[in-house]
Design a binder for these strands. Structure first.
Lengths: 347, 347
DNA sequence: CCGGGACTCTATACCGGTTTAGTGGACGGG
DNA sequence: CCCGTCCACTAAACCGGTATAGAGTCCCGG
């Protein structure tokens, strides 16, 4: 078993100074002679001293941790490459500064609110990252009433005093549509995320806007909960339409992959009979057949930037909104001129 | 802005008692008259008092949090449905008891060690869940030398004093093999996870054992890092063999889906020319074409049980090893009699 | 030679709980 | 009637840091 951890008092005694001075030395504050400071640091190192986070938390009123609450069905998160990459990015910002990430995954919005309240009332974290913004998101007022610092992922649709760290989906969706139109598609549908979620409705809006900008009829938009199951259902519905679309723009990769399966199952070839584009660039999309044309976002960079911005907010700095490199289209095989023979190499 | 949070001293003053007594009343300890206790609780509720986690942490030497360190490339995690479900399970055990999950995602094993050291030296958590056990896993000795409580996911291959919460992969792999053999397959390959990882090598071992048990020649095993990219590479290699396998058992779903794509791309039909089975039951596997035969594990239950076991360890109880319901096979469309016409409905 | 900064350092209060030693009153037994 | 016990409760130490008031020393200018 490990011996007792040394405390600041041990360092002080060993170095022959008061513990206050040790605290000053360790925190690089003025008022300590260079010589004494060197000695204190040497003793601290010698003793293997590392300050107690708990004591520091209590006396300095900080948690040294950030919170992330994910309110989605785990099954939906499972297929989605976004959060793991995002969290890895957050970590890369937190680890170097000794902060930690407190993660909550909750199923419904009621327990989501409870979770934020608990994080705040226990002062478990110094701030939170608000992801998956919704329409008139109540969390924006909530975190402020709870006194939690926060940043939002994307711009809310209501006035917000919180810095937004945003990655514009629009250009990605628009270039997907432009790409399809250029290939000759005219009936293009969109399988969207929930319209309650801002990224869901914004991707829809970008989709509609892209069509309008190209002087095309508005295409059908089927709303889903982002699950593969719902993506499959939406695809079935679209393929059953009298004037079925020749291309479908999906709001995420799992739905696109499910949609591909459904289309193939229904006897359509992709991209011959139907072109498909995904969103968020899952690794597996590259390897399916046909490889998925998709829109990639830099989720990891987003996580890092969001965490860094939140740390600055917590430190009391005023932080401006941050815009990341917009989503970009990656053209692979699932999109082609309508009627093209399938690229399947043999049968 | 919110007013100052009431402290235990406020409650004490308001109730006309000492703060020690309030502490006793709140923690259900003997030595408080029923009447006084009622009054104290009423006052506490009235004031909206909730004890400061920080103060409690400092004085009672507990963090009220568990740690989970995931040491994998985020890109590999992204496709894998395991962790999101597992974490949701952990959450479901923690939320009711006011504990939190501290999550770290690190890229390499060196920073993994550092992360555990930091969690311990900062006393950030009371215990950790060791996932992705490796051969002669150094973390088992590490956490003990750090004084961290822990449970392992699965049984280590070295002596361990830590309770193991296990879900036996074997039956899943074995029934996959049995299923394929029953269909008439004789040349069956396995695309395994890294042999450094115990689940990787155990799935391989179960695979080999299943073949041996059915008096079949050992099939080729190609080792991967669990990524879709590596699964694709392995599939290409296997299909290039002179006596190429007629079925492949993959160690996870993303690799199986990538393998399916590669096979189709190479001109093979699935399951006509090649049968495929996955592992871990991703949602999207149900919707691809052909739907993926896979092995499902109850990742969420695993998370809950692991967290509950760890909480008991932390509480000082002795905890026995726990066995969960073993993995089971889910037969869908990607496995069939060799040579069967593809189930594709039209071309 | 004295007063006033500047600089270093100490002592101590403080954060908000938990825990322990000890106090005062009621009550029962001898 | 006195003493010992038990019970409900208080006071204060304690966890390990941070922050602040103030003490001591040295140096400078007048």
């Amino acid at each position: 078993m490990v011996g007792e951890r040394p405390t600041i008092a041990d360092v002080a005694r060993e170095a022959g100074v008061s513990k206050g001075l040790v605290s000053f030395a360790l925190n690089d504050r003025p008022g300590v002679s260079a010589e004494t400071k060197t000695r204190i640091l040497a003793v601290a190192k010698d003793l293997g001293f590392s300050p107690s986070l708990r004591a520091r938390s209590l006396s300095s009123d900080r948690a040294f941790a950030l919170g992330l609450v994910i309110a989605r069905d785990p099954e939906i998160i499972s297929g989605d490459p976004f959060f793991p990459a995002f969290i890895a990015g957050v970590e890369s910002a937190l680890a170097p500064v000794g902060q930690a990430l407190v993660l909550s995954m909750v199923g419904d919005e009621a327990s989501e609110i409870t979770t934020y309240r608990q994080l705040a009332s226990h002062a478990r974290v110094d701030g939170v990252i608000l992801s998956d913004l919704r329409r008139a998101d109540p969390r924006i007022a909530l975190v402020q009433s709870l006194g939690l610092k926060a940043v939002t992922l994307g711009h809310p649709d209501i006035p917000s005093a919180l810095p937004a760290v945003s990655l514009d989906d629009g250009p990605g969706i628009q270039s997907a549509v432009a790409h399809l139109v250029e290939l000759g598609h005219r009936r293009i549908a969109h399988v969207s995320g929930p319209s309650r979620m801002l990224h869901g409705s914004r991707r829809s809006a970008s989709f509609a806007q892209a069509l309008a900008g190209l002087d095309l009829q508005p295409g059908p938009i089927v709303e889903t909960d982002y699950s593969a199951a719902d993506g499959a259902r939406a695809t079935r519905d679209l393929l059953a339409l009298a004037d079925r679309p020749t291309a479908i723009v999906y709001a995420n990769d799992p739905m696109a992959i499910a949609g591909l399966g459904i289309a193939q199952r229904a006897g359509f070839t992709v991209p011959g009979d139907l072109s498909i584009t995904g969103f968020d660039g899952s690794e597996v999309g590259q390897y399916i057949h046909p490889a998925l044309t998709t829109v990639t976002t830099e989720a990891q960079a987003w996580g890092r930037q969001a965490a860094e911005a939140l740390l600055r907010v917590i430190a009391g700095e005023t932080v401006d909104d941050i815009e990341l490199t917009p989503a970009t289209l990656v053209i692979r095989e699932s999109s082609a001129r309508p009627g093209t023979a399938t690229i399947r190499s043999a049968m």
